[in-house]
Design a protein around this nucleic acid. Structure first.
Length: 502
DNA sequence: AAAAAAG
């Protein structure tokens, strides 16, 4: 393993990282840092969760010098506000021993604080396009002194929705500059387009080109959702032994809002992030999820890219994403930094073509979904979720909720009869802090592993998804079953849930 | 077509 020192990173930065236990460089960092330090333009591509942020962040910081003049000299552009916050935090960590100041410029927030920090002379700006342009137009933000530019999630930043903004931003930045583009996905046409903004870029892939882009440490499970009660099946997955944090993706903001309500009514501890919420709500949801106060995050694609939360063991695609890129980024919220994860996808009747596309593009090797539908749910790939769900994904017969020995105590209330509880009241199941982890990270190289082959997924036993005993979280007792608000089935997930929770 | 991103 290479250290950051060996890659040419200055002692004060190395020390700042070491304070957080970050000592060894990931392959993408090994490959990009020395080159980026020389000012080489770079298109950096590496799998999700393998250290791209520091791949561009450390050389960017170092190239500004240890005591840069006041004024904006480096710009990192990101596609979402939450990622903006996260990247800012990462860069702040790396600069904790030097005076360079970083300011986060994104929408939904008061102007004053951002403007103040700019006036105070911040050298590094991390921002989303809209507010960056806004402040540039107001002449509060000058990009004329920028010499380091990064597009994070670069393929996203260059797609049709963002391209005009990006062009506008680049038009305000001097042509002589150092430019870096990073993403896990870099389609050929986007790379070609990207060259317009770069000079003699080198395309670095920290993966074998013919290896595929899926993380080998993520197991992929795909369900046909036709005639399936998704909420019910998801409830069961959420009760899997060994489940850590879970991100559930929906296609629409409305679906996210509805699902968070449904799951919380069922006694889960979920938060939602999507564009219909105000920024304060979004940030509180993210903070609660990161801190473990909520162990389920329900999100639109706003959280599909870049978001890095420790101990996400499951990603659930409530609705299948649009294409292989979106799939890969969503699934990549788990299996980060060498850990293992599970990605579960539900394929609706109308979305079979999307699954076909993803299956082909990511070389999952699953049978093409051409066979006629029967009324019984069909599983495309093997399962790793609680026994009793396999092959029979209908709601189970109702059964008394399993009150597990590991369930956290409710806050300030005695255990009341579940069924008698008013439907609207929330059960506050405490997420237990201190999930004991103890596992050594799996070989932290996303670069040397083959792509996933879910078809032959074996059954390592619920809870240990690598079969090696890692990832034994024990903080996920089955929530109390709540009376359904809406009519319909009153079936419980109870008897499908693993009974041995302790 | 949806989501994201300025207000």
């Amino acid at each position: 393993m290479t250290t950051f020192t060996e890659l040419g990173i200055a002692p004060d930065i190395v020390e700042a990282l070491a304070g957080k236990g970050i000592v060894d460089a990931f392959p993408i960092q090994e490959q990009t840092i020395p080159l980026a330090l020389t000012g080489q333009d770079i298109i950096g591509q590496a799998k999700t969760g393998t250290g791209k942020t520091f791949g561009f962040g450390l050389p960017l910081i170092q190239r500004l010098g240890d005591d840069p003049e006041p004024g904006v000299q480096a710009l990192v552009v990101v596609p979402t506000r939450e990622l903006c916050v996260q990247v800012t935090e990462d860069l702040e960590l790396a600069t904790s021993n030097r005076p360079a100041k970083i300011v986060s410029i994104y929408g939904g927030k008061a102007y004053e604080g951002q403007i103040e920090q700019l006036k105070a002379g911040a050298q590094i700006v991390v921002g989303t396009p809209g507010r960056l342009i806004d402040l540039a137009n107001q002449r509060v933000l000058s990009l004329a002194g920028v010499r380091e530019v990064v597009l994070d999630e670069a393929d996203k930043m260059l797609d049709l929705g963002f391209l005009p903004d990006i062009e506008k931003i680049f038009s305000k930045i001097p042509a002589v500059r150092h430019t870096m583009l990073f993403s896990a996905t870099m389609p050929g046409p986007i790379v070609a387009l990207a060259r317009r903004f770069m000079s003699k870029p080198i395309h670095i892939r920290a993966t074998d080109p013919d290896e595929g882009l899926t993380q080998a440490n993520i197991k992929h499970l795909v369900y046909r959702a036709h005639s399936l009660d998704k909420d019910e099946v998801i409830s069961r997955i959420l009760q899997a032994e060994g489940r850590g944090k879970t991100v559930i993706f929906t296609r629409t903001k409305r679906a996210a809002a509805k699902l968070v309500e449904e799951l919380n009514d069922r006694g889960f501890n979920a938060a939602a992030v999507h564009g219909d919420l105000n920024q304060d709500q979004r940030e509180r949801a993210m903070a609660a999820f990161k801190a473990g106060k909520k162990d389920i995050l329900i999100a639109t694609d706003v959280a599909a890219r870049g978001i890095d939360v420790d101990d996400v063991t499951h990603v659930i695609n409530h609705t299948i994403p649009d294409d292989d890129k979106a799939y890969l980024h969503r699934a990549g919220r788990t299996g980060r930094a060498g850990k293992t994860g599970i990605a579960v996808t539900f394929v609706d009747w109308d979305d079979l073509h999307k699954w076909a596309l993803i299956n082909r593009a990511l070389e999952f090797g699953q049978p093409e979904p051409t066979e006629t539908y029967s009324s019984s749910p069909h599983l495309y790939s093997d399962l790793d979720i609680p026994e009793g769900t396999k092959g029979r994904l209908k709601p189970a017969a109702s059964a008394p909720p399993t009150r597990s020995a590991t369930a956290g105590r409710r806050e300030g209330e005695a255990a009341a009869d579940d069924a008698s509880r008013p439907a609207r009241s929330r059960s506050r199941r405490r997420t237990r802090g201190g999930r004991s982890e103890g596992e050594a990270a799996v070989e932290a190289s996303g670069a040397t592993e083959g792509s996933a082959a879910p078809a032959e997924a074996k059954e390592p036993g619920a809870g240990t998804h690598d079969g090696k005993g890692r990832e034994h979280h024990d903080g996920n007792a089955a929530p109390r079953r709540r009376r359904r608000r809406r009519g319909g089935r009153s079936g419980g997930a109870g008897n499908a849930a693993p009974t041995a929770q302790a």
